[in-house]
């Protein structure tokens, strides 16, 4: 519960920071450009501070503050859950880095391949099959048919 509490505090803190920055930035703007950011920023700052305070002061009751939204699964052992969360976040950020470094057309099949082999521990046949399909999608549909401008990977940009 301690970590969840911390996260609540941090999110509210982040919202308060965003509001503070918005208000600060609006100081340099002409009135009409600044009005709406201020009208939004002031209550955001105040309410975020209130939420910060509440998340420190009050222990949350089970059903209180229920949002119209889904909740993360609680069936999994917290230690395992934590490990898996960090792993998937690593994969997501890694995918982004891979795209930046090698460009979309290479990064997509490569990522699919690596994920299936390392994280999924799938067999070779399935891995290669799905990698092939992903490559087909990427190259056939988005690259050749739609001609999306995929930037060259930084790795290749350095060489050329």
């Amino acid at each position: 519960m301690k970590t969840a509490l911390n996260l609540r505090f941090l999110l509210a803190f982040a919202a308060a920071l965003a509001a503070f920055y918005a208000l600060y930035a609006s100081l340099h703007w002409p009135f009409r450009a600044a009005l709406f950011p201020r009208v939004i920023g002031i209550p955001l700052l105040l309410l975020a501070l209130a939420e910060m305070l509440l998340s420190v002061l009050r222990e949350e009751k089970e059903r209180e503050g229920h949002a119209v939204d889904f909740e993360l699964t609680t069936d999994v052992d917290p230690v395992v859950a934590r490990k898996r969360t960090l792993a998937i976040l690593g994969w997501i950020v890694g995918f982004l880095l891979l795209i930046v470094l090698t460009g979309f057309p290479i990064a997509v099949p490569l990522f699919v391949f690596l994920y299936l082999r390392i994280a999924g521990r799938e067999g070779w046949v399935l891995t290669i099959l799905i990698t092939g399909v992903s490559w087909l999608f990427m190259d056939g549909l988005f690259n050749r048919l739609l001609h999306l401008p995929f930037p060259q990977g930084w790795l290749f940009a350095l060489w050329s």
Binding site: I88, I92, F95, F104, I130
Partner: peptide
């Protein structure tokens, strides 16, 4: 899930990028 995740991530990334 382990098979779907790379596929869903690909869809999410390409969907955002376009």
């Amino acid at each position: 899930g382990s098979i779907l995740i790379p596929f869903i991530l690909f869809l999410a990334f390409i969907g955002a990028y376009t």
